[in-house]
């Protein structure tokens, strides 16, 4: 695949669109949202790291917090996906290989989604 075609795929798919906070116009929130967006990629990376190391309790925790935070900072789409990740790593349950595979895939999706978040 040539460089050009990869680029065109990226541009047509929704996976490269920026995700803007629904609260971007709220002056009270501007600074907070910027800080949140700045820290978001790092949080998504920690989540990915935990998932790769099979620390599912940690995955559940981080996803839960991310879900809540995304809701509060105007990123409900990301929050929803974080919620799915939380549900895929239930407390104290042993996961099958297939479930782990699905979890990793979703965390990856979440990770790339987080990188598309912008404050304004």
């Amino acid at each position: 695949m040539s460089k050009r075609s990869a680029q065109s795929i990226g541009l047509t798919g929704s996976s490269s669109e920026q995700i803007r906070s629904q609260l971007a116009d709220d002056a009270d929130m501007a600074e907070l949202i910027e800080q949140f967006v700045r820290e978001l990629p790092e949080r998504a990376e920690s989540l990915l790291r935990a998932a790769r190391q099979a620390e599912f309790e940690q995955v559940r925790r981080l996803a839960h917090q991310l879900k809540g935070a995304c809701g509060g900072y105007g990123f409900p789409q990301i929050g929803e996906l974080a919620g799915s990740v939380e549900q895929m790593s239930p407390k104290g349950a042993a996961l099958s290989n297939q479930e782990v595979e699905r979890l990793l895939q979703t965390v990856n999706e979440l990770n790339s989604m987080c990188k598309r978040a912008v404050a304004r």
């Binding site: 907070l32 949140f36 917090q65 809540g68 935070a69 900072y73």
Partner: peptide, 13 residues
């Protein structure tokens, strides 16, 4: 709340 996000959010709000 154990989440720092919630603290920041409500402090502002």
């Amino acid at each position: 709340d154990d989440s720092v996000d919630v603290h920041r959010l409500l402090q502002a709000r």
